[in-house]
Structures are given as C-alpha cells and as structure tokens.
Design a binder for these strands. Structure first.
Lengths: 184, 184
DNA sequence: GTCTATACTAAGATAGAC
DNA sequence: GTCTATCTTAGTATAGAC
C-alpha cells in the first residue's frame, strides 16, 4: 500500500501527475492492473492517497525543523522548507497545491494535513506581525508566484526564489506599517 | 477556420483546455470530426492556432488602451488589462501562460505575439524605474501569483487582485531605492 | 471540403476462477 | 490477494468515396 503510493510518485515524477496510469503503475509495482483495485476503489482514490501522503511528508518536514524564536526568521524558515519541498518534486507540488486532475477533489480526511500546513504558516505570519487576512493572502500568493515561476522555467535553479526573503521583508514591513494589530 | 478556433474556445471554457476533444469540436462547428483535418494537421496544431489567437487578442487589447504618460500608472494600467484579460477566460489564461498540455509547445510563429506582450510590459517597467532583471522577475511572478490565486480560488472576484496596485508600488519603490539605474 | 467507415491506442473498470 | 479475460468508453488519426 505505502509501496504502491511510492511507485505512483516515481511515475508522477517521470510522466507528470496526470500521466500516471494504472497499467503503468501495476507494472512498476510488479502486479497486474486489476489487482490495484484491492488497494484503491478508483483512480481518484489513488490520487487521494497520494495527496494525503504528500501533505503528511510536508508536515513531517516542518516537524523536524527547529524554528528560530525570532518570528520573522521563523517565517522565512517555514517558507524555505516549503520551497525546498516544492523544488524536490514539481509533480508533487502540482498535486498538492494546484488542481491538475479534472474532477479530483481531496477527501476531508486527506485534506486535514493540508490545513495543518497552512495553519502553521498563518500562525508564523501572525507572530511576525502580519495579522490582516489580506496581508496573509499577499504573502501566500507571492510565494506561490515565485515558486511556480521557478518550477516551470528553471527547476532546480534559484533565479526567482532567491528574492523570496527580500520580498517577505518588504511585505511584512509594509503590513506592520499599515496595520499594527489589524489591517486589510 | 477562425470560426473553428472560436468554437474551440467555447469548449475550452466549458470543459477546460485539456478537455477539448476533436469530436466535440466538430459537433460544435457542425461538421464531422475527420473534416477538422482539412484545417489542422493534428490536435497540437489546433492548440497552436488557439495559442496564437489568444495572444493576438491580448495584443489588440493593449493596442486599444491609451496609457497614462506617468510611467508607473501606465504599468498599473498594463497589469489591469492583463488581469482583466485573464479573468475573462481562465482556460485561455492557462493555455497562454501555463503549460497545461503535455507535449505541446507553441511554434515560433505563434510565439511571436506572446513575446510582444512581454516586451511591452518590460518596457513599461523600465520606464517606471524598474531596470534590474531580478526586479522585473519579481513583479512578473508576483502578478502571476495573485492572478492564479484569484482564478483558482475565487474566479470573478477580487480578493487577491485588489492588492495588485499596492504591491506594485511596494516593489517598484523598492527596486528604485535599491537600484537606481541598475539593480539585481 | 465533407462525408462514412474504420483503425488504432489507451485508459479505467468489472467478472469470475484460483 | 492475485490472476486472466473482457468490457466499455473515448480519444486521435487515416482511407477512400462523393
């Protein structure tokens, strides 16, 4: 079961997340395609397991990081973990943070660790003085913009991501200057 | 031919860009599926025509805009045209600015108007005092981040895009402060 | 230029034996 | 739990008549 999901990730890295076929997956695992239905009721169920697995791994990664007690540094560390995680496996990033499979929506259970991830980021932003929902949106979207530009145009490089910390400082300073305890 | 492409856009809006099938397209046009091969050698050729068409429309849109003589305002106007164009048709945005079709790369000819679009943006950024390639990358990526967050999570709304002008000011001011005539 | 007919490929899913 | 065999659907593409 865990082995099957691992094989599925291998195929996703090779052929893209949408390019994972059950025939190829079975071949990779070393069983016949119908046997997969012992483990997953449908292809969407497979994607759901992958989604949960990916998010769990990100949570683990965050768990094993010791964050600075200086809130803004901690936020930057969180973002560094996040972008490193994204860079390791663009296909995984796609499944977790974009909507690449028409008709697939993660189940409630699988979605739980994903919310956990976001919650931690929000907590760090608040601690760093970014409390307005609009300001949080901006940091999230800006990070996604840099990350996606990096993955699409220069995977493995840092032409875009090298600006992340600087832009964070810019947005955080601005949020604090404009907001104080609240903001838009 | 232009009518076929128009029908293809209609289908793309309904079923996503990857969900356009030649059978459905032929039905929409009112001919039989094999007849499409009189117009396009392959499905990729159809996507290529759509790609060129979309970019041409964006160029037109920019052509019919009168830009402020104040460079920063002009840049904001450009971005407003761009995001409005994106918001009108998320499927079109996907085809033009993401890589949603595995194996499809636009031909040189179709790519030309796309470069035109980007060039104009860069010109406006330079006029506004943003001359470092890194600073240009940041504004482009930040705009894409807000636009994609808006399209994926709240199409038609403005939860993310309402921050665009403010963030542009932030990034432009910072680029000028750090760079003067050059910058990273 | 449009048609009918069909080839080809690939995918997800099910039935039923072992 | 795994297999063989098969179903079903859906897509791109081609051949050849009109």
């Amino acid at each position: 079961m865990a082995g099957i999901v691992a094989c599925a990730w291998t195929l996703a890295r090779e052929h893209g997340i949408a390019g994972v076929s059950l025939h190829a997956l079975a071949r990779e695992v070393g069983i016949r395609q119908p046997s997969l239905y012992e483990y997953f009721d449908s292809k969407h169920a497979l994607y759901d397991a992958m989604f949960a697995d990916g998010n769990r791994r990100l949570v683990e990664r965050l768990d094993t990081t010791t964050f600075s007690r200086e809130p803004r540094d901690a936020l930057k560390q969180w973002l560094a973990v996040f972008t490193a995680f994204a860079g390791e496996d663009p296909a995984r990033y796609q499944l977790l943070f974009q909507r690449p499979i028409p008709g697939f929506t993660p189940s409630r259970e699988s979605y739980a660790p994903a919310e956990e991830v976001l919650d931690r980021a929000v907590t760090l932003m608040r601690a760093a003085g970014v409390t307005g929902p609009g300001d949080i949106d901006c940091i999230v979207a800006m990070t996604a913009g840099l990350t996606e530009a990096q993955l699409s145009n220069d995977p493995g490089g840092n032409r875009w991501l090298r600006h992340l910390d600087r832009l964070v400082d810019l947005l955080v300073d601005d949020a604090i200057a404009r907001g104080g305890p609240n903001g838009t």
